[in-house]
Design a protein around this nucleic acid. Structure first.
Length: 245
DNA sequence: GTTCCGTACGGGATTACATCA
DNA sequence: CTTGATGTAATCCCGTACGGA
């Protein structure tokens, strides 16, 4: 399942013209942990931010010897955000780790950060984005799946309506023949409302045939019942043989 | 110049924990 | 001592900005 998801290309657009005004949590600067403090001080000049981060990480012992801004993904002197591209090796390690646990505990985060020469915040962000990508892909897969379900059910609905129409016509034209015909394997009658429906209204049976979830199948069956008979059918199908006279 | 993807960020929501009346 | 209210920290997700291929 996940392999299938991984194969799909992302196609949904997340962009929107809405631009949220950015505000700052000044208070948090004094209480947040080092990496959080860095995040919450975007008004500081970039160079100053790098200094603070370096100092904090030095104190925390998270910084590898001789780590440069380049390696740390720091910002440029001009204040522009410096986009770092993680190396193939870094990405591979993160991917492996993600496959093991999609979420990180603080220790794992710190260990990974140290191992890869990244800030813990970068590791955290990478995992957040990775989870978001996974979710997006899964949503696409689900969407495709439901679309196919819908098409299948629509087709089946058409077929069943036609079948019902034919049976009604036959009953009108030659009731004798109708009563003597062998029971249609796919039709059942609800004992309470005495309406005929398809045996495979049994949700699980229908689901088995189509390979879709039971709830989806049940929803599809309701559509069939309502459309064909103009009423609500009970969902306890019982095989019924036309009475022999 | 445009598009897409990956990285980074801000902010809201939630949860756990500490403190205090 | 217990309990409810309140504050704080940590973390997650969502929406978005932005750099680079």
């Amino acid at each position: 399942m996940m392999e299938r998801a991984e194969d799909l290309r992302l196609s949904l657009s997340l962009s929107s013209p809405l631009i949220a005004p950015r505000t700052h949590h000044v208070a948090m600067l004094f209480h947040a942990p080092p990496e959080k403090r860095f995040l919450e001080m975007p008004l500081l000049p970039a160079a100053k931010r790098s200094e603070v981060v370096a100092a904090e990480e030095e104190r925390a012992g998270l910084r590898g010897g001789g780590g440069s801004d380049e390696e740390d993904g720091g910002c440029g002197i001009d204040g522009s955000r410096k986009k770092l591209r993680l190396s193939k090796d870094q990405s591979a390690v993160l991917e492996d780790s993600f496959r093991e646990h999609p979420t990180l505990n603080p220790r794992q985060k710190a260990t990974l950060a140290q191992q890869l020469g990244l800030r813990p915040r970068q590791v955290e962000v990478w995992f957040q984005n990775r989870r978001a990508r996974t979710k997006l892909k899964q949503t696409e897969v689900d969407c495709e799946f439901l679309k196919r379900c819908c098409e299948t059910l629509t087709e089946e609905n058409r077929r069943l309506q036609k079948e019902v129409q034919e049976l009604r016509a036959l009953k009108l034209v030659s009731p004798h023949l109708y009563m003597n015909m062998s029971p249609p394997t796919t039709l059942t009658m609800c004992p309470s409302c005495e309406r005929v429906s398809n045996t495979n209204n049994n949700s699980s049976a229908a689901a088995d045939r189509r390979g879709i979830s039971t709830s989806t199948a049940a929803a599809g069956s309701s559509v069939v019942d309502t459309a064909a008979d103009g009423g609500i059918l009970c969902h306890r199908p019982i095989a019924v043989r036309p009475q022999q006279s």
